[in-house]
Amino acid sequence: MILKLISRIGEVIEKSGLRDDFIAGELKVSKRTVYNWKKGLSYPTFETAFFLARLLNCSADELAFIVEEEEK
Rank of each mutant, 00 (worst) to 15 (best):
I2F: 05
L3P: 04
L3D: 03
L3N: 05
K4S: 07
K4M: 03
L5I: 13
I6Q: 06
I6R: 10
I6V: 15
I6G: 11
S7H: 05
S7C: 12
S7W: 00
R8N: 13
I9E: 03
V12E: 09
V12W: 03
I13G: 04
K15A: 07
G17Q: 05
R19V: 04
R19S: 11
R19M: 11
D20W: 03
D20I: 02
D20H: 04
D21Y: 05
D21T: 06
D21C: 05
A24S: 03
A24D: 10
G25A: 07
E26W: 09
E26N: 12
L27T: 04
K28S: 13
K28L: 05
V29G: 08
S30C: 07
K31P: 02
K31Y: 01
K31G: 06
K31I: 09
R32H: 04
R32D: 08
Y35D: 10
N36E: 10
W37P: 14
K38N: 09
K38C: 03
K39C: 07
G40R: 00
G40N: 03
L41C: 12
L41A: 12
S42A: 09
Y43N: 10
Y43M: 10
P44L: 01
P44H: 10
T45K: 14
T45P: 14
F46M: 12
F46Q: 12
E47C: 01
E47M: 01
E47H: 08
T48H: 01
T48D: 05
T48F: 00
T48A: 11
A49C: 12
A49V: 00
F50L: 08
F51Q: 15
F51R: 15
L52D: 13
A53V: 11
A53T: 08
A53F: 05
A53Q: 10
R54V: 00
R54L: 07
L55A: 08
L55N: 11
L56F: 06
N57E: 08
N57R: 15
N57W: 01
C58G: 09
C58W: 02
C58T: 15
S59K: 15
A60H: 07
A60F: 06
A60E: 10
A60P: 05
A60R: 14
D61C: 09
D61L: 01
D61I: 06
E62I: 03
E62T: 15
L63I: 14
L63Y: 09
L63K: 15
F65I: 10
E69R: 14
